[in-house]
């Protein structure tokens, strides 16, 4: 079943009506605005992100992709003077409702950052961090969870003999997979990835992409990327952002092969600018 939702304050040249599949939506965003101080950087974002699929966010630099993805786990809360308006619901619950447990929310919504940011601790302690602050102390159980997460993040074979080594001794690509393992360890339902491969070489990037492909069986994944081919390769759905608005949101195939908007076509074919 499809419903249509009118999009308020649509920029000229974009369709005022957008098709949204309902039913399988894990994350629903409605009329979401975001402000840094008095500067509004997101305008009336409205979209549904489906469960167990990969949704890619693309768009030119500064269009608000990072701001948007960080709104989904309320990471922007720690930025002073930042303010959100509108709703984002996960499984039907408004995460911006007063009284929301942000700590619990962030455990359900994992995040991987553009630059890998391991703690200056051992590989084991990095992956175990989220479990430990969650109250897990049992040694054996910790070990099992760490192993499982590292296997899921396709890093286990490379590090199983040196779990006690510093995480900082790993290569850039390994560090990023460690950060993925660390996020997976707390067993989130949603995984947000903000340009997870932009600092990596092609081989490491391929590894991450394969990983995303495998992870989507169990997680809802939202990924920001500047790499069009990457978006085309890994995602099921793609949202094209521009100047803080969603210009077009559709199946990835449609966005790349048969976009409705001229702007989208210009952007994905590189004629933008």
């Amino acid at each position: 079943m499809t419903i249509t939702i009118a999009m308020p304050s649509a920029p000229p040249g974009t369709a005022a009506v957008r098709e949204i599949e309902s039913g399988a939506a894990k994350i629903s965003v409605r009329d979401f605005d975001f402000f840094y101080g008095s500067a509004q950087v997101l305008h009336g974002i409205t979209l549904d992100i489906p469960d167990q699929q990969v949704t890619a966010l693309i768009g030119p630099s500064g269009c608000g992709k990072t701001t948007f993805i960080r709104s989904i786990n309320r990471m922007n809360d720690i930025i002073p003077e930042a303010r959100a308006k509108g709703t984002i619901t996960i499984d039907g619950r408004d995460i911006y409702a007063p009284g929301t447990d942000v700590v619990a929310l962030r455990r359900r919504v994992g995040m991987v950052f553009q630059k890998s940011n391991p703690f200056p601790k051992s590989i084991f302690d990095n992956v175990a961090y989220g479990l430990r602050i969650g109250g897990l102390t049992d040694k054996r159980s910790l070990r099992e969870h760490v192993e499982k997460s590292l296997i899921r993040a396709a890093l286990w074979d490379e590090v199983k003999d040196r779990l006690d080594d510093s995480a900082l001794a790993l290569s850039g690509g390994q560090q990023q997979r460690l950060c993925i393992a660390r996020a997976l360890a707390v067993d989130p339902e949603i995984l947000l990835m903000d340009e997870p491969a932009s600092a990596l070489d092609p081989t490491a990037t391929t590894k991450i992409e394969e990983l995303i492909w495998e992870l989507k069986a169990n997680y809802t994944i939202v990924i920001v990327t500047h790499n069009m081919q990457q978006a085309a390769r890994v995602s099921d759905r793609t949202a094209f952002f521009m100047l803080g608005r969603v210009v077009e949101y559709s199946d990835t195939k449609t966005i790349f092969m048969n976009p409705k908007e001229k702007m989208t076509e210009d952007y994905v074919t590189g004629r933008f600018g």
Binding site: G110, F113, F119
Partner: peptide, 26 residues
Amino acid sequence: VPSAQREAAYALGATRWEAIKVAIGY
């Protein structure tokens, strides 16, 4: 201490105090 360290902790469900501990550890 890079803010990425604190953010990493927050993203894993750290409380403010736990994030501060990460910064101190760093």
